[in-house]
Design a protein around this nucleic acid. Structure first.
Lengths: 231, 231
DNA sequence: CTAACTTAGTTGAAGATTTACACTAAGACT
DNA sequence: AGTCTTAGTGTAAATCTTCAACTAAGTTAG
């Protein structure tokens, strides 16, 4: 045991984030360009060392990184997976604890300026971003996409990407975009009603040159509601 | 960045395992009694430091710990969750990457002797094990149980706890035990057939003082099959 | 002012699936 | 030969899904 109190035997540990939002063209992920070696100049998922004096726990570390890169404090955040191996970082045996964050369209709109230069939204294209990434981050991104696409089938996940207030048609449209297929309107509304994760905003209507639509918000912006069956 | 090349800033990292098997009375988890501080003498999930010279990656570290404690080499193994915080280990900021392993009843029977003394199977009772555990291991065990019970609803998970060869009635009985409720026989068989994770062993029958039953085995002992709907 | 247009939201018939339970099958035991 | 037990299948009724039409409520054009 004492041999491992010697820090030379400790792996390196970082927290990395796959931060998603909806851009006009679809799902996007936040990437940063690395300033230092290794992989200097390449794109990567935002991340950082655990600051053992500052971070109380892993989720706090993830929230700190998120705040630093986006200014957002309270998104949907979930732990995805932990990768660790001898070869993934040329500096030595390294561990990365990876989180998924979903940003509301409101958050993205409000903080557009805070992010300038250091980070950039990249549209998701199929399994990736049409770009190679530093470390094993492309593989991590694929894993994150798999998790997200899977959860769209049976959870309220897409609601966390919209602005705080939205209509059922808008919500359905995000589901359809992420699933890549059309959904039946009445079946969709039945699922959403059963899962009971929306709060109707009394009297608030979205108006256009057609029948006005009821506006809703999530009952809980920090957690997902699960459906009994797939959407 | 250079400040963090100083190892004093690295957290401690261990891999811990929630290893499950079926004992005559139901689902059991393997616990070890700690020989050293902290929590000396208390029960804990088996685990150990990552050996950066020996383990190629996290899963290899988990398999090594599993082999050391049980002698088993190829069980079902999945990453559950990673915990990390300042306070969970009195020695300092620590990370635990937790895996779930499911042992076939055959594996347990064959290695009964190899485990003597150092480790012990404890029956699961409700949310825990009727015992307090070292570190945050009770909370980790609860998390593992939640994952397992959830997966019983929509996957072939219980098949990995049985001996290599089993009948459909035996399989159904494990589902029922883990779910805590009875299942309809024809519905159960329909789901199992659809998910297509069993291989019928031609000509092999389980005989007793009643109609003989067809014997099956898992097509793949390393991965779970998922159902389209809940069982 | 009215009719046409657009999207919101609901309804219902036809088809598919699930559920509950009974029925048949194949052996051992008496 | 008859009874008992568990394996495995069949089926009618109830429920859920699908698909498409329908009604609702506004704006816009003439």
């Amino acid at each position: 045991m004492t041999t491992h109190d010697n820090d030379a035997f400790k792996p390196i540990a970082t927290v990395d984030l796959a931060i998603f939002s909806l851009s006009p063209d679809g799902l996007s992920v936040l990437l940063v360009r690395r300033a230092n070696a290794p992989f200097s100049g390449e794109w990567a998922l935002p991340g950082g060392w655990i600051h053992i004096n500052e971070d109380a726990d892993l989720e706090a570390a993830a929230r700190r990184v998120l705040k630093e890169k986006t200014g957002v404090e309270t998104p949907y955040l979930e732990q995805l997976q932990t990768r660790g191996s001898r070869g993934r970082d040329p500096r030595g045996w390294s561990i990365s604890i990876v989180y998924i964050a979903l940003l509301s369209a409101d958050d993205v709109a409000e903080r557009q300026d805070e992010m300038a230069g250091e980070a950039e939204w990249r549209l998701i294209e199929g399994e990736g971003v049409g770009l190679s990434l530093a470390f094993d981050h492309l593989s991590l991104l694929k894993e994150a996409l798999g998790r997200i696409r899977s959860k769209v089938e049976y959870s309220s996940l897409p609601g966390h990407l919209l602005p705080a207030r939205f209509t059922l048609s808008e919500l359905q449209s995000v589901y359809e975009h992420l699933l890549g297929r059309k959904l039946d309107k009445s079946a969709f509304r039945k699922r959403v009603a059963e899962a009971d994760f929306l709060e109707r905003i009394e009297g608030e209507m979205r108006r256009a040159s057609n029948r006005p639509a009821q506006v809703f918000r999530l009952k809980d912006t920090r957690s997902l509601a699960l459906f009994d069956r797939t959407i």
